[in-house]
Simulated assay, not measured.
Amino acid sequence: MTDERPEPDDARHDERPVYGERRRRVLRITVLVALAALVLPLVLSIAGQARSAAARACAVYVERYDADAVGSRVALDLFGDGGPGWMCSAVSAGGVATPLANLGLLPSAPRPVDPDEVPA
């Protein structure tokens, strides 16, 4: 006599996936969409804050370093001189933009300018 016992129904069910392939795919997509919905507002908020901080800092730099400029312009440049960051340019009356500084990815308040540093 052999001691073979039939497997209980629970043991056979443990080897199969709990959910079907279609349901798992839907759950994965739902999780990815929910994750994007949580992260996207944060990224957009940081980008907006960085742009407004760059515009304010660039206006100060243009006022200090280029007295003939009529305005300032900032642009995000990922492959610019000095690495990725906000590039500050002074705009002349003719519309020509002269680069002044790379403000970095998250610009801060401009440092004080010594009187010796101001161009004549």
Rank of each mutant, 00 (worst) to 15 (best):
T2N: 06
P6S: 15
D9Q: 13
D9M: 13
D10A: 07
D10R: 03
A11W: 04
A11G: 08
H13T: 14
R16Y: 01
R16Q: 09
P17Y: 06
Y19G: 09
G20P: 05
V26F: 12
I29T: 07
T30N: 05
V31I: 10
A34F: 08
L35S: 12
L38K: 02
V39I: 06
P41A: 05
L42Y: 13
L42F: 11
L42C: 12
V43G: 05
L44V: 03
I46L: 15
A47V: 10
Q49Y: 08
Q49C: 09
Q49H: 14
R51H: 07
R51V: 07
R56N: 12
R56M: 12
A57S: 10
C58G: 04
V60F: 04
V60C: 02
Y61L: 15
V62F: 09
E63V: 03
Y65R: 05
D66M: 10
A67W: 04
D68E: 15
D68S: 15
A69V: 02
S72V: 08
R73K: 13
G83K: 01
G83Q: 03
P84D: 03
P84M: 11
G85S: 02
G85L: 07
G85P: 01
G85T: 01
M87A: 14
S89T: 06
V91G: 08
S92Y: 00
G94T: 08
G95R: 09
G95W: 04
V96L: 12
P99G: 07
A101H: 11
N102R: 03
L106A: 02
L106S: 03
S108G: 14
A109F: 00
A109E: 09
P110F: 02
R111N: 02
R111F: 06
P112H: 10
P112G: 07
V113G: 04
D114F: 12
D114E: 15
P115C: 02
D116H: 03
P119C: 09
A120P: 07
